[in-house]
């Protein structure tokens, strides 16, 4: 079992992802990838408004064991009005553990968009009533909670543009539940000198929404090791967003399912104090309808 933190970072990223999506026409594989990455980047649309949603994570291990946990999430992107329009922004995500022995624990993540800056994380442990900042050098390659998905798999797709070059293999239609989604199928190969998890990636990118709908990761010997599928799409503010994502580790047989629900804007927005690490002990989920 690995880090739940990655789950939460991933969940935070998912929460942020839903804030932006712009369709565009692309000619080359790199163009498609860039467009997809832009979809992942944070637009200013939610600045000051924030998002509330619930995330359910279910890990089904090949051994037959199943674990699950539920999170109440509040996320927000803050744009400094004094900075240029294309400047980096900081996003905050607060994860509140719902139910079980971990009820009341809070994970707070502040993620600067700039790669040069590091995320900061705090953990509030309700049973002790104490908050600690978690300082770590850890990268984003680890699995979380023994699941098949890493932070890089889900949220770190934003790294793909820097790590891989893409070519269009073909265009086809992907069936997603009852929907037929036209997609580009990209083949991603690592850029020289870059340390990446996969030696080759095949990516299905929705033409209309620029969302990745399916990912296949291959190792250096050409064996597929990972598969991530968007099992269903939801709609939020007239944009399509991933609603259920399923990741399969083809080496271990473990399967993880992440379900997003109850996505909404908080009435009156989210106060900046919500994301202050000193206030974690006083966070009341009921106030936000959880």
């Amino acid at each position: 079992m690995n880090s739940i933190r990655h789950t939460l970072k991933a969940a935070a990223a998912i929460a942020i992802v839903v804030c932006a999506a712009t369709a565009a026409f692309a000619v080359t594989g790199d163009d498609v990838l860039n467009r997809m990455q832009d979809t992942f980047s944070i637009g200013g649309a939610d600045s000051g408004e924030g998002i509330l949603l619930s995330i359910a994570v279910v890990n089904q291990y090949a051994s037959g064991i199943t674990t699950d946990y539920n999170l109440a999430v509040a996320a927000e992107t803050v744009v400094d009005p004094n900075r240029p329009a294309d400047a980096d922004e900081t996003s905050h995500a607060l994860m509140y553990f719902v139910g079980g022995d971990d009820e009341g624990m809070i994970f707070l993540l502040s993620t600067p968009e700039a790669k040069s800056e590091k995320s900061r994380m705090w953990l509030y442990i309700s049973s002790f009533g104490l908050t600690k900042e978690l300082v770590s050098d850890e990268d984003q390659s680890g699995n979380f909670a023994g699941s098949t998905l890493t932070y890089a798999d889900i949220a770190g797709a934003s790294d793909m543009r820097d790590d891989y070059s893409a070519t269009i293999l073909r265009e086809e239609t992907l069936t997603l539940g009852s929907e037929e989604r036209p997609v580009w199928v990209l083949e991603l190969t690592p850029r020289a000198g870059v340390d990446v998890e996969y030696a080759r990636v095949v990516l299905w990118v929705d033409k209309a929404e620029n969302l990745f709908l399916r990912l296949e990761g291959y190792d250096a010997s050409g064996v597929e090791t990972k598969e991530i599928l968007v099992a269903s799409l939801g709609t939020f503010e007239e944009r399509r967003i991933p609603e259920v994502m399923v990741g399969r580790d083809l080496q271990t047989g473990d399967v993880s399912t992440i379900t997003l629900s109850g996505m909404r804007r908080p009435a009156g927005g989210l106060a900046e104090s919500v994301f202050d690490s000193a206030n974690l002990g006083s966070f009341a989920p009921g106030t936000y309808g959880f």
């Binding site: 079992m1 890990n59 022995d101 850890e138 909670a145």
Partner: peptide
């Protein structure tokens, strides 16, 4: 509850339980 949350803390810190506990 304290045990549970300490273990969650370990997981937050990138800890791997390995053989000491099933998921």
């Amino acid at each position: 509850k304290q045990v549970s949350q300490l273990l969650a803390l370990f997981s937050f810190q990138g800890g791997d339980f390995g053989t000491v506990a099933l998921p």
